[in-house]
């Protein structure tokens, strides 16, 4: 089963990935091949099998909720592509 160009474009938008025309074409081919291979798992009957999300036996690890210092604002903003005062600066959210 091939994945359509529209599906590739839709998924790219969900992931907020701007793709070029060539990338979209290549990914359509590659994802179709890869997903074909993935379908081998349908050979296995899993109707009675629960899913596994993680493998360690830990649940709800708790610690005392004590105040402690955070990283200084200047250090955090030092990596920001753009800033204004103590804020991250971004392009307009609305047109």
């Amino acid at each position: 089963m091939a994945i359509s160009r529209e599906e590739v474009e839709h998924v790219a938008f969900l992931a907020r990935l701007g793709l070029t025309e060539e990338e979209t074409t290549r990914l359509q081919e590659q994802l179709s091949t890869i997903l074909d291979y993935m379908r081998t798992i349908n050979e296995v009957d899993t109707s009675e099998i629960p899913p596994t999300a993680q493998v360690i036996p830990l649940r709800n690890v708790m610690r005392p909720d004590e105040p402690r210092p955070s990283l200084p604002v200047e250090q955090i903003l030092a990596n920001a592509p753009d800033r204004e005062d103590n804020h991250f600066r971004v392009p307009p959210v609305l047109d």
Binding site: I3, E7, V11, R16, G18, V90, P91, P92
Partner: peptide, 27 residues
């Protein structure tokens, strides 16, 4: 716009294998 920044930042910032995996995972 912010949306345009997201799309282009991620489109230009990630390489082909990372894009492939993000696409596969999102799908």
């Amino acid at each position: 716009t912010t949306l345009d920044a997201y799309l282009r930042t991620r489109g230009e910032g990630f390489g082909p294998e990372v894009k492939r995996r993000i696409m596969l995972g999102t799908y």
